[in-house]
Write a protein that binds this DNA or RNA. Sequence first.
DNA 1: CATGAATGAGGTTTCATTCAT
DNA 2: TATGAATGAAACCTCATTCAT
Lengths: 212, 212, 212, 212
Amino acid sequence: MAARKAPAPKPRKTPVQSRSKATVDAIFQATIQVLLVQGSSRLTTIRVAERAGVSVGTLYQYYPNKQALLGAVLEWHLLRVVSTVEEAARSAHHAPLAAMVKAVVDAYVAAKMHDVREAQALYRVAGELDAVPLIRAISQRGHVAVTAMLETAPDATFDDVGLCAYMFVAAMAGPSRAMLEGGASPAMFAMLAPQLESLCLGYLQREAARPT
Amino acid sequence: MAARKAPAPKPRKTPVQSRSKATVDAIFQATIQVLLVQGSSRLTTIRVAERAGVSVGTLYQYYPNKQALLGAVLEWHLLRVVSTVEEAARSAHHAPLAAMVKAVVDAYVAAKMHDVREAQALYRVAGELDAVPLIRAISQRGHVAVTAMLETAPDATFDDVGLCAYMFVAAMAGPSRAMLEGGASPAMFAMLAPQLESLCLGYLQREAARPT
Amino acid sequence: MAARKAPAPKPRKTPVQSRSKATVDAIFQATIQVLLVQGSSRLTTIRVAERAGVSVGTLYQYYPNKQALLGAVLEWHLLRVVSTVEEAARSAHHAPLAAMVKAVVDAYVAAKMHDVREAQALYRVAGELDAVPLIRAISQRGHVAVTAMLETAPDATFDDVGLCAYMFVAAMAGPSRAMLEGGASPAMFAMLAPQLESLCLGYLQREAARPT
Amino acid sequence: MAARKAPAPKPRKTPVQSRSKATVDAIFQATIQVLLVQGSSRLTTIRVAERAGVSVGTLYQYYPNKQALLGAVLEWHLLRVVSTVEEAARSAHHAPLAAMVKAVVDAYVAAKMHDVREAQALYRVAGELDAVPLIRAISQRGHVAVTAMLETAPDATFDDVGLCAYMFVAAMAGPSRAMLEGGASPAMFAMLAPQLESLCLGYLQREAARPT
DNA sequence: CATGAATGAGGTTTCATTCAT
DNA sequence: TATGAATGAAACCTCATTCAT
């Protein structure tokens, strides 16, 4: 499943003229729009170009192929989520464990839920790409930030901070995706953040309490 | 994403004859094989038929179209996972909370990790279908089983057992998928089950301790 | 110029049904027709399919891509020419040198001029293919046949029969192509065969007369 | 193949300024480079312009379209070859037949083999153009020069000098191309010139000896 | 004049589905 | 009933050419 896929190529041209800048932006936004409105199976280069108000040829001036385009959009999305988490983690340094968890969970939920369907759709297309390296690299940033934060907790010390940070971040994804994929009700969504806090805090407190 | 899709058609023929049964099985296995070996974008009806050792025509005798086939395969996979969880839950009735969690987590991890890549690939194609109702229905069975189990816990009572069961089941998926998608090391995989236990037990104990 | 090119793939399906046989034949003939009527730059798979009276899809059932199709047509043409030469050479064993030359030249000119424009067009497309191995292999057959013939000449012996055979065959191509490419008049074409005889016979007699 | 094609347009601007001259030269060289490095099917105007260090727009200032460019490059190449032959022919006036042949063959082989692959590639693109008139016109110059030379031969007279000159020049192309297209060994290439001499001299001597 | 972004027709190829055998 | 050849819409991508800057 990995061997078949070529590494996702990068944009082929850096926009030097201002006209270009507007065009790439339009293509970028159009990709997300088509993904949301039409679904991943109807996401074609022609439709993206049409929605962006440019011709297919123009699209291919900036992205050498469909994969490159999708890769760029996915990266942009992941970066947005991870930077939100990074910032939250940084702001919670030296806070009590419960406050740390609340800060990170709130940031994560806010970022993820902000564009609920966008996230959904992007995870779908990620499968067609060889997105593993990208996802891994960006996740790494989240783990590093959360690890650094946990190490400053005044009321908890961990045997394996890295592992705890990994589980912390990964745990948030489970119920989030479950609600997205299962089409949960607004009432359920309202409970997501507090429940995630409970989930992660319960875990971290257990791990902090463990005998070395 | 949902409005566009017609409800997934059902198999058009119930396998009453043993020959039919064998054919359907072959098609099932072939679908998964092609998905794993060639990837979702190369999953074509002709390739499935070839791998199953039948003709395309025959395939279309059993499934009116590609969606119906994928839906059936996905359902078959989900049922296998959920029934494992159901059985584990049933067998842990009246056990202490920690034992319950261990039973369910072990069953879940065993079932999920058994066909690691199969699960991955199927979730991918699930996006192309209108699989939400199916996923919701089958998840529901898992929640019901876990809810029933939790209600018999001798050492814990929950304010909202249904919600706790939901979070419990959903939480397991987060780190599991994270490891699959991120291509974790064997060492990491070895820690999955105990860590999931800690995660879920920490959560459930917190929730059980809460004041009503 | 060689490294860029993948080896021309072979037909992908052997026609087992009689309907298939007719289809491949039609596609084959259509390719030549389009090449002649429209020219090599207008030779598209769609046009070939249309002319063959089938759909593009059908064309691709028999040839995995355009190159494979062109390769097959080129091979067929070359085989026709070389087998004509082979037969002529075989029939002239033990004849006097002049008769040998006349036999081979006449056969060559007849085969080449038979489909003048076809030969032209095919040499053009050959450049887009990696046709070198094919051309070399088939030329080899011609050289072998002519070498064998020359060795039986009662009135001439050669220092290096292989080289002489090579030059003999290659020499015929020069004026032939010149007339084709230069668009010679019918009067010129009429002189081709006798002139080629003179050319080749002059050469071979010189080489036979040389001191070892 | 001829009726479809409009007469190849001429360059739209004569290089009077030195900057223009340099640009035209750069475009010429770039065309040949792209042809050799990327192949005729990847010979695009943008690639030529890039390699020449100018913009497409500039390229179109000098040549109204791609055909005009290719025509100009082909003409430039052919002129170089033919002028070599002309010079050799002129220098061999009044020499014995054997010396004439040697002079012309050596010049031809030197010119052709000098840019072996260039010649090959150009003949390929020539097919896409309506290059027949051009090729004929330039060949004509070669024939005229050789005819003039042959008429001064002190040791031979020909019934139809024009025809003999035509065959002489055309004959050289056969083995030359055969070696290029067949990818002959260096040993074979070393024998090309002497063998061509033998071929052409044999022919011319036969023709000179013929009874009127 | 030079530039290079934009165009869009057209080329190659794939694949779900049908239907004559 | 099973077969697999045939279909053709539709996907991806390229490239000669134009024209606003």
